[in-house]
Amino acid sequence: MLESVTATALSSALDGLALRQRAIADNIANINTPDYHAKRVQFEDALRSAVSAGSGDVDATTERSLEPTRLNGNNVNLDTETLSNIDTVLRFQFATQALDGQATSITKAIGQASA
């Protein structure tokens, strides 16, 4: 597909959201693991800056959560993970639809140009 800032940004967003989905799954899988600290994936601020600069190409980063821990040293909160999962799924669907819309527009434009 033809590269544009929008397409690059959407691709970066999808990569970041996929990484966040894996982190959420890891967090939930380790909810009872002593001394496990939840993972948090960040990319939105970097993506916003990259788009403003005309790029849209960023890599997501994973950090350990600094939220308070329970007595066993674990800080995974199932409510937080569930809400984050719902938000991530909705954002992924939105970004996928936006990227699909761009591809459809390009396909239509190519079809009209060859007609």
Rank of each mutant, 00 (worst) to 15 (best):
M1G: 13
M1P: 08
L2R: 08
L2P: 14
L2W: 01
L2K: 06
E3F: 02
S4Y: 07
S4W: 06
V5G: 04
V5I: 13
V5D: 05
T6L: 08
L10R: 02
S11W: 05
S11D: 11
S12H: 12
S12D: 09
S12Q: 09
A13P: 07
A13D: 03
L14D: 02
L14I: 09
G16H: 08
A18F: 07
L19T: 03
R22C: 00
R22Y: 03
R22N: 10
R22G: 01
R22K: 15
A23Q: 11
A25I: 05
D26G: 05
N27F: 12
I28Y: 03
I28R: 04
A29V: 10
A29T: 10
N32M: 05
T33K: 02
T33Y: 02
T33V: 04
P34Q: 09
P34V: 08
P34D: 13
P34T: 10
D35C: 01
D35L: 05
Y36V: 04
Y36H: 08
Y36D: 10
A38L: 07
A38G: 04
K39N: 15
R40Y: 03
Q42G: 03
Q42V: 09
Q42F: 12
F43K: 06
F43V: 02
E44S: 13
A46C: 04
A46S: 12
L47S: 10
L47N: 09
S49R: 12
A50C: 06
A50M: 05
V51T: 06
G54S: 07
G54I: 04
G54N: 05
S55N: 14
G56I: 07
G56P: 11
D57Y: 13
D57E: 14
V58K: 12
D59Q: 13
D59S: 15
D59A: 15
D59W: 01
A60E: 01
A60Q: 06
T61F: 01
T62M: 09
E63N: 02
R64W: 00
S65T: 02
S65E: 05
L66T: 14
L66W: 01
E67V: 01
P68D: 11
P68G: 03
P68H: 04
P68R: 09
T69S: 15
T69C: 05
R70W: 03
N72E: 10
G73P: 09
G73E: 10
N74F: 03
N74C: 07
N75I: 04
N77G: 07
N77Q: 14
N77Y: 04
D79N: 14
T80P: 00
T80A: 11
T82A: 12
N85P: 00
N85A: 13
I86N: 02
I86T: 10
V89R: 08
L90A: 12
R91W: 00
F92A: 12
F92R: 04
F94Y: 12
A95F: 13
A95M: 11
T96A: 14
Q97S: 07
Q97Y: 02
Q97T: 06
Q97C: 00
A98I: 05
L99N: 04
L99M: 14
L99T: 01
G101N: 10
Q102D: 01
A103V: 14
I106F: 04
I106C: 00
I106Q: 04
T107I: 13
T107F: 15
K108N: 11
K108C: 00
I110G: 00
I110F: 08
Q112V: 08
Q112D: 14
A113V: 05
